[in-house]
Design a binder for these strands. Structure first.
Lengths: 222, 222
DNA sequence: CGTTGCGTTGATCTCTATCAAAAAAGGTGG
DNA sequence: CCACCTTTTTTGATAGAGATCAACGCAACG
């Protein structure tokens, strides 16, 4: 059981009044995970979805050979698996914590009942859905229409932030995970990074990648 | 302007009473397309979504080199681009008719207003969303974790139907389109089909593919 | 018929996964 | 702080899948 103030901060519920929040808090519980812990496995029945209060998880698929494709890296503020609860009620992928992670668990049943009374919540969920759909569409596009170097270039451009040194991409995940995000393997990622470094397009430090030439990266996309 | 009876048949609205249907019919219009016509282009602002009354469209992306990845083939009964209207309001892909196609156009604005009053419609839309999300997740999985032959095998298994000759996959699209659905090119698809034929796993006629050995196809998936 | 686009086949080349191994980076316990 | 172990990252060599380029048969269609 958790407190209504804890859930009031989440965008999904930020239009609701105290009475509703109390009600929701009544059926939510909290969960905590250590790095490597699974929140759920592919194929498990989906009776709840989650909010990430703090930490980081990955949603991923495995091939029969054991290759991993990360679908999403989710951080605090995100909802996890809200898609699974309306449909076949099975989680379609694995979810593993990458850090110490604190989540709020929202049972599907209660949530669906809530939506029937609160269309505002429904609209927010739909907004989250459409964002995720867009994300997956762009992922399909990248995977099937671009090579690894272009996928990396796009990732760098999308994740870089301005700093005193110029554009810098701070990796929040290991290179091994990044490889799985990009749909490749660590060796190939390592080589792709080296090529960009040798061309003086980027500068590599351990977890920071500084972009020397934004335009050169953009050229790789076409 | 269209009639309320025309929209009553669509699953999205099949829980609504006459008064609601009249209301909805009031803001819907119909559109018809010939093969090759575009319903919308990538990047266009999304002010409406659609129902397919009859016909067939493809939703696809293009790479800078002009390669095509089909995201979906949609047929009568499907909604088109219902995802685009809650988010950034831009169509994220192209939509082109493959046959003569009749659609009902539903303006986003009116539809959102409807949802706010009718949670039942919201739940149905969410159901459609989660189905599509699942579909895209499985597409990402296939594209990044399976080779072309496995993707083809899965397609055949998923689209085959029982007939007097056994399992038969009737192609509703050209092989060129099928290649784009599978994330490859016609040459590669042609070779993959030939290999399956040479192994006596399938029999090729022009638009029918008969499956001789279901188990052999299933073995290709692992 | 000629034209146009589709489907197939062949030859080649590029990209990326795989295998193997070394180097670097973290922990952990003494 | 150091030796030890594990995991990550990098590098090299190789092989395989699939894209590309080119050519040709074929059917549809004006």
């Amino acid at each position: 059981m958790i407190d209504k103030d804890q859930i009031a901060e989440f965008f999904l519920f930020n239009a609701l009044d105290d009475e509703h929040l109390e009600n929701i808090a009544g059926f939510c519980t909290s969960t905590s995970l250590k790095p490597g812990d699974h929140l759920f496995m592919e194929g498990e029945s989906a009776e709840a979805f989650y909010f990430i209060k703090s930490g980081q998880v990955k949603i991923y698929k495995l091939s029969v050979q054991g290759n991993e494709q990360i679908l999403e890296i989710l951080e605090d503020g995100s909802t996890v698996a809200e898609a699974a609860i309306f449909d076949r009620e099975i989680y379609p992928a694995y979810c593993m914590a990458l850090e110490n992670t604190l989540l709020i668990k929202i049972p599907a049943k209660n949530f669906i009942a809530l939506i029937e009374k609160e269309p505002a919540v429904a609209l927010k969920i739909m907004h989250a859905y459409s964002k995720r759909l867009r994300y997956f569409v762009s992922m399909i596009e990248k995977l099937s229409l671009q090579d690894v170097r272009a996928r990396l270039a796009r990732y760098l451009l999308e994740n870089a932030e301005k700093s005193e040194k110029g554009l810098v991409c701070r990796l929040k995940i290991s290179k091994k995970e990044l490889a799985a995000v990009l749909g490749t393997i660590p060796e190939t990622l390592s080589r792709a990074l080296r090529i960009l470094r040798d061309k003086n397009i980027i500068v590599l430090e351990k977890n920071n990648i500084t972009i020397n030439s934004r335009s050169a990266l953009e050229r790789l996309l076409s």
